[in-house]
Design a protein around this nucleic acid. Structure first.
Length: 122
DNA sequence: ATTCTGACA
DNA sequence: TGTCAGAA
């Protein structure tokens, strides 16, 4: 299972591929990066290279924006998911994680996940 | 040919 | 967010 994640994290996709996979324009993809929502790697020629994980994140950003979320909210959401993944793999009980995110969960309680399983970690 | 940055008639 | 220019 670690092998799969490793590959999904490899940044090898060019802008053109990400554009067709996400349905977003290069402009939007670069702008979202400026908003710290994705962090593509640059190759020797200063070209951006995205991973499958980046594509997944871009898809979440796309639907998140579509359901009225702003960049700050998405940014916090992603940071929190990252936090939980770390803590969870560092032995923090799921109960403690939910308690820690109580405020956000209250807000998200009302809305429906734009993408099936977007709040999966919450 | 493709992507990057900066700028805005 | 689109789009165009000039460079890589």
């Amino acid at each position: 299972m670690a092998e799969k994640q490793l590959r999904r994290s490899l940044s090898v996709l060019p802008m053109s591929t990400v554009m067709t996979l996400t349905g977003l324009t290069a402009r939007q993809i670069r702008y979202y990066e400026s908003q710290a929502l994705v962090h593509p790697v640059r190759n020797e020629g200063n070209r951006r290279r995205y991973s499958l994980q980046d594509v997944d994140r871009l898809l979440e950003v796309k639907d998140g924006l579509a359901s009225g979320m702003d960049f700050a909210t998405l940014r916090r959401l992603f940071n929190q998911s990252a936090q939980i993944r770390k803590q969870t793999t560092t032995s923090l009980s799921d109960q403690q994680a939910r308690q820690y995110l109580e405020p956000e969960m209250q807000q998200l309680a009302g809305m429906k996940p734009p993408v099936p399983g977007l709040w999966r970690h919450l």
